[in-house]
């Protein structure tokens, strides 16, 4: 069976890997010059199924845990040190609320926080520790996946390749899996973009082992340690469909949060500012839409709406994609059009 995947972000690459492992012949078409350069590129890479449930549906926790297992098994760069949630002292109410809305964590007092993250000593009186969570660097993860697909599975990558929807039902492939994210807006009634802005800071004065989620009454900010003294700070959530244009206010807010977590971030170098759109449906849950061709080949599957949960959901979603293609499985939570 020949499968064509449109879009080489985290959704496309995880689908590709699962199909490739089953021995199918895969072509990946990517509009950019490299895989994973779309909105996956700006992801935080937190594998935090328990934290996310604070504002997400229970399905996210369930599938997120599945994906967490997948990443630990498939990507050796997955860092399994848990994650920590803190709040400034005047927003302690936010921390209590977060605790009420989530599970699978322990309360930490100041001394225990310092034990886990020595650089945070004396900065917070209380924190929540989600020990089973993990994180990864989205960029190296996607590079790794691309390499594996090419070397181990002989997957063909076609870059600068934009395929119009009219060409999707091409019978040269048994199935075309559309993983274009927000670029597929026209294929759905209700797909919207939720803008996210992020930045990368570099500081050799601060060392963190795990993501720190800093609660803010309006949006959660997280700081995720990367290699080479880098930290990703993200991300805003703005209800608009602007793919570019990072605003001063957003960066000010992100920097402010980083500075509140540790004042040494004030002297950090700004390495990068980034911005893209999270493809989202009204319930912020993903969707699979199956469009069968009247012929034996040329079927199409649209996969979209991973919202802020790209890395957290993609492997679990890819597994459902495989089931839909191979066994015509039906998943009611995500298969009725939003």
């Amino acid at each position: 069976m020949r499968i064509r995947i449109i879009g080489g972000g985290v959704a496309g690459l995880t689908c590709a890997l699962l199909f490739a492992k089953m021995g199918f012949e895969i072509d990946i078409f990517e509009r950019l010059t490299q895989a994973g350069k779309g909105c996956s590129w700006y992801a935080g890479g937190m594998l935090a199924p328990w934290c996310e449930v604070e504002s997400a549906e229970p399905l996210i926790a369930k599938w997120g845990q599945e994906s967490l297992t997948f990443w630990k098994a498939e990507f050796s760069g997955t860092q399994s040190f848990g994650s920590i949630v803190v709040a400034p002292s005047r927003d302690t109410a936010e921390l209590k609320r977060f605790a009420r809305r989530t599970e699978n964590f322990e309360w930490l007092e100041a001394d225990k926080i310092a034990e886990l993250e020595p650089d945070l000593e004396g900065r917070f009186m209380a924190a929540l520790y989600f020990q089973e969570e993990a994180h990864l660097d989205p960029r190296t993860t996607l590079e790794n996946l691309t390499q594996r697909l090419t070397l181990e599975y002989d997957t063909k990558f076609h870059y600068n390749a934009e395929i119009s929807e009219a060409e999707f039902s091409d019978p040269a492939w048994d199935w075309t899996i559309d993983c274009r994210g927000f670029s597929a807006q026209a294929s759905f009634k209700n797909l919207r973009g939720v803008k996210g802005e992020m930045l990368v800071l570099k500081s050799s004065e601060i060392h963190l082992k795990r993501p720190i989620r800093f609660l803010h009454p309006r949006f959660p900010v997280y700081i995720i340690p990367r290699n080479d003294n880098m930290f990703m700070v993200g991300a805003t959530m703005i209800e608009n469909s602007e793919r570019t244009r990072i605003t001063a206010r957003s960066i000010m807010e992100l920097l402010n949060a980083a500075y509140a977590v540790h004042p040494a971030f004030g002297e950090a170098e700004i390495i990068e500012m980034g911005c893209d759109l999270r493809p989202s449906f009204p319930d912020n849950l993903p969707r699979i839409k199956r469009i069968e061709n009247k012929f034996a080949k040329g079927h199409v599957l649209h996969v979209n709406g991973l919202y802020r949960h790209g890395f957290l959901l993609a492997p679990a979603l890819a597994k459902r994609v495989v089931d839909v293609v191979l066994t015509n499985a039906y998943f009611k939570e995500i298969m009725d059009e939003a």
Binding site: S55, K195, N240, S241, R245, T247, P282, D283, N284, A338
Partner: peptide, 28 residues
């Protein structure tokens, strides 16, 4: 948590007016 939950809350409470912000969402 999501626009779907927002819509449901507004419909079920039969709120007479909804207010919506534009300053930050408008963009360019």
């Amino acid at each position: 948590p999501s626009p779907a939950i927002m819509a449901d809350a507004i419909l079920k409470s039969k709120a007479g007016v909804v207010t919506v912000s534009l300053r930050r969402e408008a963009g360019n």
